[in-house]
Amino acid sequence: MTTGPLNDPASGPTTVSATGLTLRYGGTRALDAVSLELTRGVTGLLGPNGAGKTSLLRVLATAVPPDSGAFTVLGHDPSTTKGRLAARRTLGYLPQTPGFHPDFTAFAFVDYVAILKELTDRAARHREVRRVLEAVDLEDVRGKRIKRLSGGMRQRVALAAALVGDPEFLVLDEPTVGLDPEQRMRFRELVAEAGEGRTVLLSTHQTEDVAMLCHRVVVLTHGRVRFDGTPAELTARAAGRVWVSAQRDPGALAGWRTGTGTFRNIGEPPTGADLLEPTLEDGYLLALDGESTEVTA
């Protein structure tokens, strides 16, 4: 099975390039020869639990080295100490389960991360910290200790920590977990804004986030790239393969009762089926189905 970037819809120069990234945890192959080329803009990374999304993000964030393969971040090769430091100077990383020093205030914590990003000028750094806290709508609680903040607020503190220093490459691992719909909308605005002129890699389970934010989507399963293209192309894969029926269709790959009492099915429709307009999620579910699914859109 081919796992390379067969369809790159993005324009502009390549900012992050990965070739044959492989990562093993004991006997488990978390990444299996993943190749990717990212450009500026927001790229969505979709995949089921255990697909290797977090592993890929951790490798690209230089948190762990790959077992084999190579990658560059804005021209820097993280396999060398010098290259890794240079890559990290361009990086903002929001991990899947961000942790904090609970007794720090939101301001103090983001300020600490800013220092770790080598922002040494106190006045300029504090201005930058205030800017990102304002951007994530935490200006009012900046003096509050993190242990007193809600889960959603903590998530935004972590996002502010990723954004501080205006990184050129932003790696976001399931950032909308724990956010309410209003916060998610605000978050989408933020990421869309960040994607203008920067490279953003967004791992998520939310296909709506990808549909609304991303110019490109990569689907990972079993550590391999199963699809690499535009959201429209992923949606188009489901064209003619989504239909509605009065009863659950046993021939469907997946089917569920909708609010109207009818069943929405995806897969190979029977002759004369009442076809529906596909969504990105339909295309994604089809991309996950079976090892024989084609890579390209």
Binding site: A61, A63, R88, P95, L116
Partner: peptide, 11 residues
């Protein structure tokens, strides 16, 4: 506790 949040920094 902030280990993962402070991964990928140059310091």
């Amino acid at each position: 506790p902030a280990r993962h949040t402070t991964t990928g920094v140059p310091v």
